[in-house]
Design a protein around this nucleic acid. Structure first.
Lengths: 121, 121
DNA sequence: GACATTACTTACATTTTATATAGTACCATA
DNA sequence: TATGGTACTATATAAAATGTAAGTAATGTC
């Protein structure tokens, strides 16, 4: 999809870190700008492309497509195409995708706590 | 520190998402290339600048500095300068920083599981 | 035959993030 | 006076991620 340079230092560093640090590896998978938000929505059940787009008001179709593709490649979600016109495509978390649920919940709690700490006197 | 354009669409989107999604907000804080790795090391106790650098073999001093500054700004870690020559600077997680521990552990477990799923037949 | 609908592609521009390389300040010690 | 160690800073460049705008395919309905 998007072209990454496998000869770059950045690529090498990312690989090396991900190899020895599973938490960094995990963060690389769900760390895209929209990836976590997409997963958060899908935890409540499958959604169509257009439904996701509505729930992420400012996302462009291109970005949504890219993020969904990346998540599909990483086996976080399953894409189902129905042979209809106009097309209908549904996205659903895989089992390993659903296992992100407790992590997302904890991130949410930590985030709320951090916000209070930082923004309130 | 690094200059972000507060007038960009990207910035606006990030803000909007982080505002309504605390998990995305959290991911933005610990999602830097090296940030999570730094936190992972500091969970075991305070470290000096040079010690961190040794533990992250490929990081440049500039990157380490930037990430540490960002983490300090976000109150994830505390920086202590000792008035000596040559200088000695220690970095230590704050209480809210230490609260990342269970998240990091879960991310690590999930990452390991995901690796098995993807890389083994 | 023109049009609407949905889920994408493609080409290109901009913004953000990361790396490379060189330099600085401080002062104790040689 | 020169050297060494530590934790940075400055500037330039490369790479990656994100955004903009336009198009495509398929087919049922008007």
């Amino acid at each position: 999809m998007s072209k990454i340079k496998t000869t770059s230092t950045n690529f090498a560093n990312k690989q090396a870190l991900a190899d020895e640090c599973s938490e960094v590896y995990a963060a690389n998978i769900i760390g895209g700008q929209w990836a976590l938000a997409i997963c958060s929505w899908l935890i409540n059940g499958k959604l169509r492309f257009g439904e996701l787009r509505k729930r992420l008001p400012n996302i462009t179709e291109r970005m949504l497509t890219l993020q969904l593709q990346k998540l599909e490649e990483n086996k976080i979600l399953k894409r189902t195409v129905y042979p209809e016109v106009p097309p209908r495509v549904e996205y659903e978390l895989t089992p390993i995708g659903y296992e992100l649920k407790p992590i997302i919940e904890q991130l949410e709690n930590w985030g709320k706590k951090h916000k209070e700490l930082v923004f309130l006197p």
